[in-house]
Design a protein around this nucleic acid. Structure first.
Lengths: 202, 202
DNA sequence: CTCGAGACATAGATTTCCTGATGCTCGCCG
DNA sequence: CGGCGAGCATCAGGAAATCTATGTCTCGAG
């Protein structure tokens, strides 16, 4: 059996852009520039001869065709991601080493305190570190870094998060992750943890 | 949600190679050289840090990890292919124009005669043409060409088929298809038709 | 033993892809 | 109403990935 498949990297850009409702957001996730995402999506649309997004100056929205197309693509990627994680785990048999910058540590978030604590969680062990994405290089001492700014993170995976400080104020933080790790079990566990904490403190 | 995905083109090469049990066969399908497939698979194995094939001089076989990995990948590609065909059909609303070379036409296969007949089938209309893959260029008069040789088909999708002649002898034919069309509904229908005819004449 | 098929390695060439700059459009706000 | 600012499109140039071509090796068939 032979498959008729569109450009797969374009498909990935499409899925990410749809999820973020933004080419810029997708670009952060994919560690490329917004222009690259724009080109990938356009190439996909050309290959399909079908428009997937409406573009306006401020936002993108899915066309009916895009809406129809997306769920299957999402399922397919979930399937691939799950199988990959099962066959070749991203962080086999160890915890994700999370760095937390002094700024954030000082804010005294309850969740973060739990992560830095004696044993961390099953999947994560936190530590206070300098605010330096350079610690994330291959072979470095960190797998991910939670900080306030997204500066100097070219080529790194970004997730924007809200962190609840001790005084119940909300901080806009950025979880910077080494590519190749982003999306593995431990990383998902971390993102979930932070998202739940933010959601529960309304 | 963020996905951890391996190199998608390598995944495609992996799936095709597993199906053909051969890098060369996969290369035909993907319209590249066997060396390219070899490199894509190796890059995938490196990214996963997991060996997917055992290589011997004459053949490749899946490792246990490869065996475990394959079904999910296959399901994912099926999902994508189906969604793509549903959202953006390869040959929207028309029949596949199949060329049949004089050699094969003369052999007088019953199935082929049916295809060339007045109306063809629901999906296919056949015609006798010269043995020239050049007819398959974009904008040309053919979508696929059934012939005996695979010469001069660089960059075109190949499927190897068996055709039953009028005298019940078996001919090794090659179905050459324009890339971008291979795998669409009409093409699948054609491949099925020929495969069934060959199977039924044992 | 020789031959052929097929996998691998490498180098060079080609193509793809990404970046960075620039321009545009739209909504917001003074 | 006119000046931002955010975000997407586009383009040219360059970086990076990918493909081809060639040669080598191994194995199995004859």
């Amino acid at each position: 059996m032979t498959y008729r498949l569109p450009p797969l990297n374009g498909l990935r850009a499409f899925e990410a852009a749809a999820r973020h409702r933004s080419f810029t957001g997708a670009a952060d996730e994919l560690c490329v520039t917004p222009g690259a995402v724009s080109q990938l999506v356009k190439a996909l649309e050309t290959a399909l001869d079908t428009r997937l997004f409406h573009r306006s100056a401020r936002a993108i929205t899915l066309t009916p065709e895009g809406k129809k197309y997306l769920p299957a693509i999402r399922r397919a990627f979930e399937e691939i991601a799950a199988a990959t994680e099962a066959t070749a785990p991203g962080l086999p048999g160890r915890k994700l080493r999370l760095g937390i910058t002094p700024d954030l540590d000082r804010a005294g978030s309850a969740v973060l305190r739990g992560l830095v604590g004696r044993k961390g969680t099953r999947d994560i062990v936190g530590q206070r570190v300098a605010d330096d994405p350079g610690l994330l290089v291959q072979g470095g001492s960190l797998d991910a870094l939670l900080r306030l700014s997204d500066e100097g993170c070219a080529g790194l995976h970004l997730d924007r998060m809200t962190v609840i400080a001790a005084d119940r104020s909300r901080l806009d933080a950025v979880l910077v992750t080494r590519p190749g790790i982003a999306g593995c079990r431990q990383h998902k566990s971390l993102v979930m943890l932070l998202a739940r904490a933010a959601r529960e403190s309304n």
